[in-house]
Design a binder for these strands. Structure first.
Length: 707
DNA sequence: GTTAGGG
DNA sequence: CCCTAAC
């Protein structure tokens, strides 16, 4: 399995299996004097790649001490003049086995050093890093980089620069973008340790282990193993703070005209220097990536591969008991990542992560009776919206190596770059005492974790969503330069999870039984088209129109029916069937650490009714009438724990309202007109029915007859 | 605990 | 969705 496969796998597993985009509540600044330093990373113009690269660089630098010196060697394999290969003491044999991965132009133009404001050392440090990096980078200005990839031994990396052809599928372009982030994974801290056993005793002596606060300290005298690094992850109390954004500076990516999924990890190397931190921040020019291919390095990378392969991490609280002091916030939540193939654990890990993240601003609400000693100095980082724009179109076909034209038509390539790719609603917690390196690392992990499957990328063209992944760029009008300026990317919750029936995460069978009518007054109600696939809906939302079981059927509506086709629309995400799972475990939506303070009864997470639910509701009301919400609940939503009868009543209310207003005034996911018509009909019927009852209560004789 | 209705 | 009066 190639690295790409693994990443993809992860995306698929996490993506279409019910993971919901985290909704990070924006915590108001604690009023209790728990002074959390709010800081805008946005100001720092840091970019995710910087972070990733930095993290990688840090990890590498730790190892570097024991590595032989590297040397830069012209990379002749590609035949491109401006390429440079980085190699070290490995044998030529080894090198030959690996194809170079070529990064075609890495521009770091967005490196504005707007770091004014000496609020804290962190900021200054970042600034420092950036400067250093800039100066370094300017020395060399390769148009492209040829980087030896040591990520995968088995899967040589294709040496071609990929191009986004005008005919490239949007989905592919999007995935390429996502991939870009996903690729950061192996370098980002996260990687767990396969060696990490449940019992902490096997761990290296504490003295040798990095601890929170000096995590990626490059000055550390020893080399950390990945498992050590892992621990650090667990230890870094997440944290938190203000609006920040991480920008991806003009990353230019060409989309290949054949839209098939890249099987390989193409050009996945992140720019990193041996000086992790120094190299971290944006610079105006590409930085040569030094990939150490030493044996040691390889071991590490192999390990990373394993880590990737394992994809999911099981969190064990039994670990790291020795470190409770440093991580009060995580007490009882110690994370031990062991190989684990269940998705659940994957989500669990994230859940934990976010749990840690969220509470910080509150000075330790979320910990179970954990002391607050370390709460005082925390830095809060948040990222908001994400957007990106395409690079201006360039009609010139790719001139890079080995690009095979795949279309008959003149194939113009769309050159695009992504500027400021912000991650929405991501909250990161980190202690004030943490190092810059650990900050970067934490952010890196958060970003990659989210992009690893929790979110998908959406494409906006002139403000409009481009939904059809199968359209070519040309068809979608993305190939024309003038429009490219209005092109953007968004992060979206994974469709496999969206408002779909699965939202009833508490229970897949949100519709208990088929709304069997008790009195059957509705026999006369126009049996409105049984869930005809309304174009409006099918177009706007992938959800199928589930048919509520007929009254005389005892069938059970299962969202699985609805979700499976839905997944198929998820296109790239639906490559692998996702096994059923405990959705509840995945419902990390709230991200609100169990509020230990009852006074702050938080508002429930908004969960819009899916069309399927509306359908079920309408069906039930048709049968049961209005005013019997408890019955409606029991009948149609018995297993949808998140839908109370009050919810159903409210929804009906809004449905009636919606049905009465013009379609233009309606918001949210469009409800099929057919359904709305049924709503009006049923509402009218039952209103009249009630009125009749009030005016003319059934004669006692009738009651007797009934009895 | 349910229902109805305002916010 | 929340809140709450009314039952």
């Amino acid at each position: 399995m190639s690295l790409w496969d693994m990443v993809l796998q992860k995306r698929v597993d996490c993506g279409s299996s019910g993971y919901q985009a985290p909704v990070m509540p924006h915590f108001p600044r604690s009023a209790k004097g728990k002074r959390s330093v709010r800081k805008k990373v946005e100001d720092n113009q840091m970019c995710a790649f910087d972070l990733l690269a930095t993290v990688a660089g840090n990890l590498l630098s730790e190892r570097e001490n024991s590595l032989a010196q590297n040397s830069l060697t012209p990379c002749n394999e590609t035949g491109t003049s401006n390429t440079v290969a980085v190699r070290d003491t490995v044998t030529q044999d080894q090198l030959d086995k690996e194809k170079p991965c070529k990064l075609e132009a890495f521009d770091w133009l967005r490196c504005t050093e707007d770091l004014s404001g000496p609020e804290n050392d962190l900021k200054m440090q970042i600034k420092h890093d950036m400067k250093e990096n800039t100066s370094k980078a300017t020395s060399s200005d390769p148009a492209s980089l040829c980087v030896k990839s040591d990520i995968s031994d088995e899967d040589p990396i294709g040496g071609e620069s990929k191009l986004f052809g005008a005919s490239g599928k949007i989905g592919h372009a999007v995935d390429t973008v996502a991939e870009r982030y996903a690729m950061g994974r192996p370098y980002s801290s996260p990687a767990g340790s396969l060696e990490c056993k449940e019992d902490g005793s096997k761990k290296p002596q504490q003295a040798e282990r990095p601890v929170a606060g000096n995590v990626i300290d490059r000055n550390a005298p020893h080399m950390y193993s990945l498992s050590d690094a892992m621990d650090l992850d667990g230890k870094t109390p997440a944290l938190v703070s203000s609006d920040s954004s991480f920008e991806v500076p003009l990353y230019r990516k060409n989309i290949p005209c054949n839209s098939s999924f890249p099987k390989q990890d193409e050009c996945m190397d992140l720019p990193m220097d041996k000086d992790g931190d120094e190299n971290s921040s944006g610079c105006t020019h590409p930085t040569v990536v030094t990939n150490k291919a030493s044996r040691l390095q390889r071991i590490g990378d192999r390990r990373i591969r394993k880590l990737l392969a394992s994809k999911f991490w099981k969190v064990s609280p039994t670990m790291l008991q020795d470190d409770v002091e440093q991580k009060p916030a995580l007490r009882g939540k110690r994370m031990c990542y062991t190989r684990q193939r269940t998705q659940r654990s994957s989500f669990k890990r994230r859940k934990l992560f976010y749990n840690c993240s969220v509470s910080a601003s509150d000075g330790g609400i979320y910990n179970e009776g954990v002391s607050n000693i370390h709460e005082k100095g925390r830095i809060k980082l948040e990222t908001n919206d994400l957007h990106a724009t395409w690079f201006g179109a360039n009609g010139a076909p790719s001139s890079t190596t080995g690009q095979k034209p795949c279309c008959e038509l003149p194939d113009y390539h769309v050159k695009l770059s992504i500027k400021s790719f912000k991650v929405p609603e991501l909250v990161i917690e980190i202690p004030e005492t943490a190092t810059v390196g650990s900050l970067k690392r934490t952010v890196s992990e958060a970003v990659t974790a989210i992009l690893g499957g929790g979110l998908r990328i959406g494409v906006l063209l002139q403000g409009k969503k481009v939904r059809h992944d199968n359209k070519t760029l040309r068809q979608a009008g993305i190939s024309q330069g003038d429009k490219l300026d209005n092109l953007g990317f968004t992060l979206e919750p994974n469709p496999g999870q969206a408002p779909a029936p699965l939202t009833g995460s508490e229970d897949p069978h949100f519709l208990g039984l088929g709304c069997a009518p008790e009195p059957l007054p509705l026999a006369r109600i126009p049996p409105t088209a049984p869930a005809t696939k309304d174009q409006g809906v099918s177009d706007a939302s992938p959800q199928p129109m589930p048919t509520c079981p007929e009254s005389d059927h005892d069938s059970v509506y299962s969202p699985a029916d609805a979700s499976s086709p839905e997944k198929t629309t998820a296109n790239s995400l639906a490559l692998v069937a996702v096994p059923p799972m405990n959705v509840e475990a995945l419902a990390m939506v709230p991200l609100r650490s169990k509020p230990k303070r009852p006074e702050a009864a938080q508002r429930r997470v908004r969960r819009p009714f899916s069309v399927a639910e509306v359908e079920a509701l309408v069906q039930a009301v048709e049968n049961l009438g209005t005013g019997r919400w408890r019955d409606v609940k029991l009948c149609a939503f018995e297993n949808a724990n998140h839908r109370t009868y009050v919810d159903l009543k409210d929804k009906w209310k809004t449905l009636v309202h919606t049905a009465r207003i013009s379609p233009q005034q309606r918001r949210g996911e469009p409800v099929p007109q057919v359904l709305l018509d049924r709503v009006l009909t049923a509402h009218a019927y039952w209103s009249q029915h009630q009125a009749k009852l009030q005016l003319k209560p059934p004669p006692s004789a009738e009651i007797c007859q009934l009895l």
